[in-house]
Amino acid sequence: MTRKPWTDTEIKVLKRFYADMPGAAIAAALGRPISQVYGKARKLGLAKSESFYNGPHSGRLTDGTLGVSGRFQPGIVPWNKGKPGSAGLHPNSRRTQFKKGEMCGAARHNYVPIGTTRMSKDGYLEVKTNDDHPVPVRRWVAVHRVVWEAEHGPIPKGHIVCFKPGMRTSVLEEITVDRLECISQADNMRRNTLHNYPKEIVDVIRARAVLNRRINRVQKHQ
């Protein structure tokens, strides 16, 4: 089986997010095996950031002092010393103890791993990027947002990334930068109410929005 070549956009996504995002999440967003993500990262000389290694996804302790304040110090006698069964070592106790990393009930039934994709209630493809606590946190991120930020960086305040008119898709391979645009929330609101106007007015509004974006780009680079 011939390995699919990496596109420029995929490489930009990898460079943008590899340092701080779990490899499984990147692999799901790109539709590639995680082994290819790690292999390409090595070839590009990419590495995880210090903040990633200090975070929960690395599986490492933040430093050598984590939990020091709650440890028994030399000379302290535990309250349960000499009391059979109080330490939870009895076989009957062990049978009902939670194992490390174990979930139960609804949490176990509903859990999906990092890198899983799903459809949002609005019909957008999302990828799970973390298992952080406490809830709620942004565990799921729209794939088109990930693709846009890899190409252009963080989304400006008061703006959103959306599909260009008529180019929306939920197929992972088809979510590419050329299908996307970053517009203000005000423009997005006007766009979503265009169906209330006659076609002639809609054309004028769209043309004006395009002109305003071009003017803003020119002024930004002056």
Rank of each mutant, 00 (worst) to 15 (best):
M1S: 11
M1Y: 04
T2A: 06
T2M: 06
T2V: 08
K4C: 14
K4T: 14
P5I: 15
T7F: 00
T7C: 11
E10D: 10
E10C: 02
V13L: 02
K15Q: 14
Y18M: 02
A19C: 10
P22C: 02
P22M: 00
A24P: 06
I26C: 07
A28N: 09
I34F: 04
R42K: 13
R42W: 10
K48A: 06
K48R: 12
G64C: 01
G64F: 07
L66R: 08
V68K: 12
G70C: 10
G70A: 14
F72V: 03
P74C: 10
P78G: 04
W79T: 14
N80R: 13
G82S: 05
K83S: 08
G85R: 13
S86E: 11
L89W: 06
N92R: 10
N92Q: 07
R95E: 15
A107C: 07
R108C: 09
V112T: 12
R118F: 01
S120N: 06
D122H: 07
G123Y: 04
Y124C: 01
N130H: 08
P134E: 03
P136I: 04
R139K: 10
R145I: 00
V161W: 00
L172I: 08
E173M: 13
T176K: 02
I183E: 00
Q185M: 05
A186Y: 12
L194H: 03
Y197S: 13
V204A: 13
V204P: 05
I205T: 08
R206E: 14
R208N: 15
A209H: 12
N212A: 15
R213I: 07
K220H: 11
